Amino acid sequence: MIAPLLTARTDEPASVLLATLAAQGASGALSTASGIVYLAAGHVVHVESAVTPDLGDLLTHSGALAPDGWWAAIDQAGRRCRVGRQLVDSGHLAAGALELCHLGALFDAAYFVLAHDGPALRFRPGVAHWLGAVRSVPVDTVLRESRRRRELLHRIWPEPAIDVAPLARVPSDPVELPARRGRALAQVDGVRTAAQIATALACRTFHTLVELRRLAAAGLVVPADPATASAEPGPAPLPAALDEPDTALLRRLLHALEAL
């Protein structure tokens, strides 16, 4: 992998530095306390965060791709930063399916990287992610979508601790819930975070956050606390395919990017 010289730490908010790098047409990796944004020619090409499932988790846990196919692509093309291209060329994944899943993972991770718009830690010019080119996104689109998600989640339930803390159920009488929300609640065990629940359900993190904040608003879920955590494990979740209520939005974003 490429190992360029690191730039000095900066105290600029990540959103401000991203806008500057976009205007400069920069390529490289911008690190924050919550993740890394990868740029190519001033566009965002990938974002990763430790608190969201990565693209491989989404593809393999959903059944869209066998784990062996994922790791084979990394072995064969990781050093050349062409893993995405290898998945498509080998026939393991259709190009459209890869692009939609990649956009979902990118915007999920960007939400956490930009959630509090803390200071950028450093920018490493020339660093490329091993996934390689899948679909680039203008920086202003990423910033705007992250802001939209933050505002939506705040309207549902204003406490952001739900996003990152281990979660526990509040003991209550059985309540009928929509299937997706019920599956999310079944995974709440006092230990798992939203990202871990999303991984278990093979669902994008943002969609899981929406359901968990709705559960919090209904008084059914709280950040884990020994005094409130349920002592009984939840029922086994239903087998879940990749559950995407926002696929239409991603398709609109994809079409808009193609029109640029």
Rank of each mutant, 00 (worst) to 15 (best):
I156S: 08
R204T: 07
P53C: 09
A224Y: 02
V83G: 03
G132N: 06
D54A: 06
G190D: 04
W157G: 00
P245S: 05
I197H: 04
D246V: 06
E99W: 05
V137A: 07
V221D: 00
A23F: 01
E176A: 15
A224I: 02
R122Q: 13
L249G: 14
D163W: 08
E159G: 10
A128D: 12
M1T: 11
E159N: 13
H61W: 10
Q24I: 00
A50W: 11
E151D: 14
L103G: 12
L6I: 09
D89K: 11
A33C: 03
P125H: 10
S90R: 15
L30V: 06
A40N: 11
A195W: 00
L106W: 04
C81W: 03
V127G: 00
A186Y: 00
A14K: 02
A194R: 01
A229W: 02
Y38F: 15
P13R: 07
D68N: 04
A259H: 13
L212I: 07
T60C: 15
R213L: 04
A198W: 04
I156T: 11
A194F: 01
H116E: 12
Q86G: 00
A73M: 04
S34H: 13
I156D: 01
V83C: 05
L131R: 07
E244L: 11
L55M: 03
E258N: 09
E145F: 12
A231G: 15
R180D: 15
R124E: 15
S27H: 12
D57E: 15
I162E: 01
V134F: 05
T32R: 03
A14G: 10
P237K: 03
D243M: 05
P233Q: 00
L253R: 13
R144L: 13
L209W: 13
F107I: 09
L215C: 06
A120D: 02
T60N: 02
G234V: 04
A66F: 11
A109S: 15
A161H: 07
R85M: 12
P166H: 03
R169N: 05
A26W: 04
A40C: 11
L39I: 11
L220R: 14
R251F: 08
A128Y: 03
E176M: 10
V16E: 09
D54V: 05
V113A: 14
E48D: 04
C101S: 13
A120Q: 02
A41S: 15
V170H: 07
G96C: 08
A186M: 01
A72C: 07
S34C: 10
G78N: 05
I74Q: 09
L100S: 10
T247K: 14
W130I: 01
A110H: 10
A186D: 02
E151M: 11
P223H: 08
V134C: 12
G219M: 10
E48T: 14
A179S: 12
T141M: 14
W157K: 06
R155G: 07
A217E: 01
G63I: 12
S62M: 09
A231F: 02
L106I: 09
V175Q: 14
A8W: 09
L249N: 13
T32K: 02
A64E: 08
A161S: 10
E145I: 13
L253H: 11
R183T: 05
